[in-house]
């Protein structure tokens, strides 16, 4: 199979290379689809409501219990209009809903300061129409710093990023958050790892932090990306406690493919 795909180079001329280049560009350009999330689904029930003030351009993200509330949603509404109203068809069941409006207009990606977002709302949809008012205030706070921007301190984190085979992962970064939801931009981001997968992050203060590692930067992890949170399987990440004046060592984060 591999042999069939290879092209013998001995007869290639400039035009062949050009054709190959165009073909490769075409193949590479066939971008992956967004992670599986339904815009709407045919079902028996309808979840509808209004995002107050009213607020335009808000999407309602609906998750099933147990799903990662910051990953791809089970269903996403279309953006609300000027009246702030939304409607979504869903199969009967229990859900967790959250309204988000990103200032840049994106449908996916982290919610950052200046964006609007609601609390997580538990809702049960059982036949007919369910009305749900939603309040989505503007998020305040958060900023991101590369570790290189921080003056070297005696406080920090060190460790290694590994893949599912236990091998070091190069060209990945550790993202450090101080909020458990990890939905905002990371507070600190490490420099890229080298071939040994090792990282070192200096932090201005000790405290409770939450970590993730990934090979891409910006936006939610997509199919094929390498991504891993520092957690033990729970919905929320595990807290990493860094004492003032301590470099907490041997913090290993495993990344796996996003399926």
């Amino acid at each position: 199979m591999q042999g069939k795909r290879r092209i013998s180079l001995k007869k290639l001329n400039l035009v062949c290379l050009l054709v190959l280049f165009i073909a490769m560009t075409f193949l590479a350009g066939c971008g992956d689809d967004e992670a599986a999330s339904m815009k709407t689904s045919s079902g028996h029930s309808r979840l509808q409501g209004q995002v107050t003030m009213p607020l335009e351009g808000v999407h309602l993200y609906v998750y099933k219990p147990g799903m990662d509330l910051y990953g791809p949603a089970f269903a996403i509404s279309t953006a609300t209009g000027i009246d702030g109203k939304f409607a979504l068809e869903l199969p009967d069941g229990d859900y967790v809903a959250v309204a988000r409006k990103r200032a840049g207009g994106e449908e996916t990606g982290p919610v950052v300061a200046g964006d609007n977002r609601s609390e997580f709302i538990k809702v049960s949809v059982q036949g007919g129409v369910v009305d749900m008012p939603v309040s989505a205030p503007v998020k305040i706070g958060d900023q991101r710093n590369f570790t290189g921007d921080i003056e070297t301190s005696k406080t920090g984190l060190a460790g290694q990023i590994l893949d599912s085979d236990g091998q070091p992962v190069a060209n990945a970064r550790v993202h450090v958050y101080d909020h458990v939801q990890m939905s905002e931009r990371p507070k600190f981001v490490s420099e890229k790892t080298g071939p040994d997968g090792r990282y070192l992050i200096y932090l201005p203060d000790g405290g409770t932090y939450y970590l993730a590692a990934r090979d891409k930067f910006g936006g939610p992890p997509k199919l094929g990306d390498l991504y891993g949170r520092y957690d033990k399987g729970t919905i929320e990440p595990s807290a990493v406690v860094v004492k003032e004046g301590q470099i907490l060592k041997q913090v290993v984060i495993t990344v796996t493919k996003v399926w």
Binding site: K4, R5, I7, S8, K11, N13, V15, C16, V19, L27
Partner: peptide, 18 residues
């Protein structure tokens, strides 16, 4: 000539048409 050359190259070891 160029086209002939390309064709002969491709028939010797075909590329997988994905």
């Amino acid at each position: 000539g160029l086209c002939f050359f390309m064709l002969s190259a491709c028939t010797a070891d075909p590329v997988l048409d994905l």
